[in-house]
Amino acid sequence: MSAIANTIFSPELAARFDKLVTIYPLKRSALVPMLLYAQDEVGYVSDAVVAEIAQRLDLLELDVRNVLSYYSMLRTKPAGKYNVQVCTNISCMLRGGFELLDHCKHTLGIGHKETTEDGLFSLEEVECIGACCWAPAAQVNYDFHDELTPAKMDAVLDTYRAREKK
C-alpha cells in the first residue's frame, strides 16, 4: 500500500518511492532519482509525475520543475521505447561518432530528439557518455554499445527490433 493514495505508478515503483524518501537525512534528496525512475516507467516526466513527486516530497510543483529542467536526461515529452543516444563528443567524434549519428538518422529516418512513427526508436545526439576509450559509443536506453561501426549499429538496432517481435 503506497504512502500516496491513487498513485500513478506501478505498485513496485510506488513501494520503491515509499522507501526512497526515508533513506536520506532530508527526503528532498530523493528528487533526482525519483524523476529518473518515474521517467523509466512512464516514458517521460509528465505533469502527473511532477504532481505526485511534489506531493511525495512536500515540494512545490515549481520546485520539481526547476530541478527537472536542469538535468538533460529528463524529458517532459514522450520518446520512443528505445532511445538511441549517440555520443559525438571529442573522443567519439575522432573515431566516427558523427558518421554513426548520421547513419542512425538515415536508417531510422528521424533526426535529433525525434521518434520513429511506430514509436519504437527515438534518436538523440548526446554529450560524452564515459566510453571514450571504446569509441565510438552509443547508449540505447541504459545499455552501452561500444566500438561501433554503421554495420554494428544496424545489428544493435536489429536486436531491439527482434525483442519487440517476440
Binding site: N89, I90, S91, E127, C128, G130, A131, C132, C133, W134
Partner: peptide, 11 residues
C-alpha cells in the same frame, strides 16, 4: 559523476 570528455576510468 565522471563526465569530462575523454574520461572513462571510473567506468
Amino acid at each position: 559523476d565522471e563526465s569530462e570528455p575523454g574520461t572513462c576510468k571510473d567506468h
